[in-house]
Computed example of a mutant assay.
Amino acid sequence: MGLTPDRGRNLPAPRLAQAILLAALLSYLTITMLNILSAQLGPGKLVAALLSLAAIFLIQLSHSAPGAHRAPAWRKWVTLSVQAVLTYLPMIAFRAMWGAMAGFLAGSLLLLLPARLAWTLYGSVGFSMLLPPLLDDRSTLDAIHLCQSSLLTGLVVYGLSRLSQLVREVHDTRDELARMAVTRERLRFARDLHDLLGYSLSSITLKSELIHRLIPSHPKRATEEVADVLRISRQSLADVRRVASGFRDMSLRDEVVSAQSVLGAADIVVRSRLSFGVLNQQVDTVLASVLREAVTNLLRHSRARVCEIEGLQREGFVRLSVTNDGVDPAYQDPSPYSGSGLGNLESRLRAVGGSLTSGRGKDGTYRLVAEAPVSTVRQLAAVDAAELPLDGPAA
């Protein structure tokens, strides 16, 4: 589930989470330092206490840092051992006043070690704090209080350290998701631009070549073709605007009519048969894109004389097949930017639960077949041959 902008703004920043952790650690250190100062110890013990507190603070920062649990095992055991020495050795001089530092050790164990071992040692550290108050001839309640406060401090250190790490990971993940969204949008734009303009530009090139041949001998027919080029170019401009604005709806039936005109201009006989209901708009757009790509590839990569377009609906699926008889096995597109239209279409069909297959037949034909769920709004009667009469070249 993605983060909405409002939720993203409510997340604590990594620096804030780190600041909260530092404030908590410093608070515990300050409490311990105030306890030691109140005992009015000599200068030597006071300096030793302050140095030990500083060392524990630095070690705890390293244990609470992001990724500390991924450090080599030997390094974790070394730093934990040093922290344990700095936790228990000063208790000989400071007794229960030093007890809060056991909470830091307990939290570090939870942060660095495997769960079962960590929780066992965590409990052991907590219960070990029953002894210092008893050695100071304090009451059992004081011993229980120190044990409970050490365990609680360990949980606070562990919880705030993990919270700081998780906040950082969430922010990093959100940044990565934003980068991925930008990349996907760029790919979407490039894919749609290829699907829409590849066909239109191929059509304009083909018809321009036809006009060039017709001008000397058939000027009237050339004028008609110029009007068709203008129509295609205007449609191309509209397609670019639709891609830029995110509206990319296309109609398979409209694309069949357009394919008739373009292929007919190339003297290719087009036969079509359509029999399906009203399609879901997304499915209709994807299948229309498949037909555009098929016609574009036919014009660029083959020497077809006949093209058959068939769209049939069966058992909740619509099946579009485009077959031509002009496969040129030796053809190779010299352009380094020949595109990856079929790959784009295959991805788009998978997104709507469909599939795409293509290949050469033994009889020398090339066939492209796309299948997708119909998701019809309402069923229409089958289109009879009179609606789309395409048994000859379309002028």
Score class of each variant (00 low, 15 high):
P393W: 08
A24P: 00
L53V: 09
L16F: 13
L214E: 14
S347C: 11
R231W: 08
P43M: 07
W77N: 02
A65V: 04
L287G: 05
N10K: 15
S217C: 08
D137L: 08
V369W: 03
D384Q: 15
L41T: 13
M1F: 13
L196C: 10
L177P: 04
D328W: 11
V257E: 06
G359D: 11
L390H: 10
R292T: 01
S52I: 04
L252K: 01
I309D: 00
K362R: 12
L86D: 01
T376W: 11
T87V: 12
L206N: 11
A288L: 11
N297K: 05
D325N: 12
P389Y: 10
A115K: 14
H63N: 09
P334G: 09
M91A: 05
H145Q: 10
R300G: 00
T323H: 06
K207F: 05
L166F: 11
A238M: 07
V286C: 06
W98A: 00
A227Q: 09
A266P: 03
L356D: 01
M1Y: 15
S233K: 10
G354Q: 03
F94D: 01
D142F: 05
G246K: 07
H194C: 05
A265S: 13
V269Y: 02
V318C: 04
R292H: 00
D6C: 06
L110F: 00
R7G: 04
I232L: 07
M33T: 13
G42S: 07
L201S: 12
S321A: 08
V78I: 12
A48F: 06
L146V: 14
D284T: 10
S289N: 09
G103C: 01
L298H: 01
R378C: 12
A266F: 03
S275P: 01
L390P: 05
R9K: 15
E255H: 12
H171G: 04
G339C: 07
V377C: 10
Q281L: 09
G316M: 07
L166S: 11
S347T: 15
N324E: 00
L61G: 03
E387L: 14
G154R: 02
A394I: 11
